[in-house]
Computed example of a mutant assay.
Amino acid sequence: MSAEVAPDEDARDLLEDLVSIPSPTGEEREAAERLAAFFEDAGREVWLDEVGNVRAPADDSVLLTSHIDTVPGEIPVRVEASEDGIEELWGRGSVDATGPLAAMAAAAVATGVSFAGVVGEETDSRGARHLVADREAPDAVVNGEPSGWDGVTLGYRGFLAGEYAVETDSAHTSRPEPNAIQTAMAWWSRVADAFEVGGSDAETPVFEQVTAKPVSFEGGTAADGLSVEAGVEAQFRIPPGESAADIRETVEGAVESGEIEWREPIPPVMESPRTEVGRAFRVGIRRVGGDPRLLRKTGTSDMNLYAGAWDCPMATYGPGDSELDHAPNERLDLAAFDRSIAVLKRVCEDLEE
Rank of each mutant, 00 (worst) to 15 (best):
A116M: 09
A116G: 12
A116W: 02
A116K: 08
G117Q: 04
G117N: 10
G117K: 02
G117D: 10
V118G: 06
V118F: 00
V119D: 09
V119L: 12
V119N: 08
V119W: 02
V119Y: 02
G120K: 10
G120L: 03
E121W: 01
E121H: 01
E122A: 14
T123R: 13
T123V: 14
T123W: 03
D124P: 01
D124G: 06
D124T: 15
S125A: 13
S125H: 14
S125F: 13
R126T: 14
R126P: 00
R126Q: 10
G127M: 09
A128K: 03
A128T: 15
A128Y: 01
A128S: 10
A128H: 06
H130Q: 11
L131V: 14
L131S: 10
V132H: 03
V132I: 14
V132D: 00
V132F: 01
A133R: 14
A133S: 15
A133M: 13
D134S: 15
D134V: 07
D134L: 05
D134Q: 13
D134F: 04
D134G: 13
R135W: 12
R135S: 15
E136I: 08
E136A: 13
E136F: 04
E136K: 11
A137C: 11
A137S: 15
A137Q: 08
P138K: 03
P138F: 00
P138E: 00
P138Q: 03
P138G: 01
D139Q: 09
D139W: 00
V141D: 02
V141R: 01
V141Q: 02
V141A: 07
V141M: 02
V142D: 01
V142S: 07
V142H: 04
N143G: 09
N143K: 00
N143A: 12
N143M: 06
N143P: 10
G144P: 00
E145P: 07
E145S: 06
E145L: 04
P146K: 06
P146Y: 06
S147W: 06
S147H: 06
G148V: 10
G148Q: 03
G148P: 08
W149R: 02
W149L: 07
W149I: 11
D150C: 06
D150I: 10
D150T: 15
G151F: 00
G151D: 12
G151S: 12
G151P: 10
G151H: 08
G151C: 11
G151Y: 00
G151M: 09
V152H: 12
V152G: 08
V152F: 06
T153C: 12
T153E: 04
T153Q: 07
